[in-house]
Write a protein that binds this DNA or RNA. Sequence first.
DNA 1: CTATTCAGCGAACAGGTGTTTACTGAGTGA
DNA 2: TCACTCAGTAAACACCTGTTCGCTGAATAG
Lengths: 219, 219
Amino acid sequence: MTHTPPSTLGPRATQKLQTRQALLQAVLRLTEHQSLGGLSLREVSRAAGIVPAGFYRHFPDMESLGVALVEQSLGGLRTALRAVRVGLTESDEIARRSVEVLAREVRAQRDQFRFISRERYGGMQRVRQAIHDQLRLISEELATDLRSGDVTASSVLADWSEEDVRILTDMIVNHMTSTAAAIVDVPPGRPAVGHQVIATATTQLQLIIVGARHWLDPA
Amino acid sequence: MTHTPPSTLGPRATQKLQTRQALLQAVLRLTEHQSLGGLSLREVSRAAGIVPAGFYRHFPDMESLGVALVEQSLGGLRTALRAVRVGLTESDEIARRSVEVLAREVRAQRDQFRFISRERYGGMQRVRQAIHDQLRLISEELATDLRSGDVTASSVLADWSEEDVRILTDMIVNHMTSTAAAIVDVPPGRPAVGHQVIATATTQLQLIIVGARHWLDPA
DNA sequence: CTATTCAGCGAACAGGTGTTTACTGAGTGA
DNA sequence: TCACTCAGTAAACACCTGTTCGCTGAATAG
């Protein structure tokens, strides 16, 4: 009677998942000084501890591996950003806390974000597309939270057109990716530089918010 | 007695320059669908019409070729941007005209800017450094024009600290690079999409300017 | 006219590449 | 227990890679 499919995976599937993660980790490690397109399938397989032919048990090619990496990385950031906004109504507060979360996330998953920065414009087509799609999702979720919900209570955004809100959130997301790239490039062991980067980014985001507040002002 | 060095280069040097340009052009052509790190020296030499060994007559390696390409590309943009600001005093006008110049330049030198976008975060170390340096120059020149000169006459920036001006111009330059990347990604033969991108970028830049105007306002 | 320079050539080198093939042997389901 | 699935293996395939070497022959300098 105990015919429920095992909620805990068998040793077979577990081991496969581990190897898959080893492949993803290998790419993150190897892309510290070069881009995905500069890696060879053999190099990655070697670093993951399997033979080249074994690679095909997990991905049909390196581009697919890249797409999987994008979804794992940006998916995590997306939920973290969504979580930080619940209960906040002051856009100043949202700005400061969003930059904080971004900084924390980037420092915790440094090589994931280096990978994203690297491949956002530089990478292979499907990888770039995957990044683009994830960023659009983040932008749209931010737009929803800014237009509806408690946030609008203390905001001027209620009067804005959908189009204008999209323009605003696109800019904010672009600013976030620039910030992430800047944090990634901070030399390790120089936390002072990191603080400087975050302070600058926060100021810039506040300037955007001030602009948004006075957007519809009489000239 | 006619010992002046020839102001017009001899056929020898001329031909060498042509081959050098052929190498640069070959890289621009080949990086449409992959990044510089994914190109092989042989591939580039072949596309330029020379034998692999001939490559070394011009560059010691591909990274150096990339640096040369960066300086040629961003050097042009830098002078074009500096030129467009002379005689302008209204920051609104500066914003609109800067985006115009950027868009014109990007469309005229599409593959150069695609290359810059590709390599800004994705590329090899020295290439990234070269891009970073050029962008910092652009940011500093903009800061100088905003602080001194006629511009300040109708601006609030006169009261700003150097640091704050740097923060502002850094953000503007980042916005420009995002815009350039977006324009490059516009599908060819869809000018309507291109107009949309430029309109969005202009609005975003104006929002930044509004923010700057009210930056020191009493809350 | 003569001696020198040097951009580009052709061949060779040791080694890395993606992909296919047939295989092993532990994990699985009935 | 027993057939079968399938993650990982080992070897072979034809091909491309960066770099070096000595050579050519036209442009150059004196």
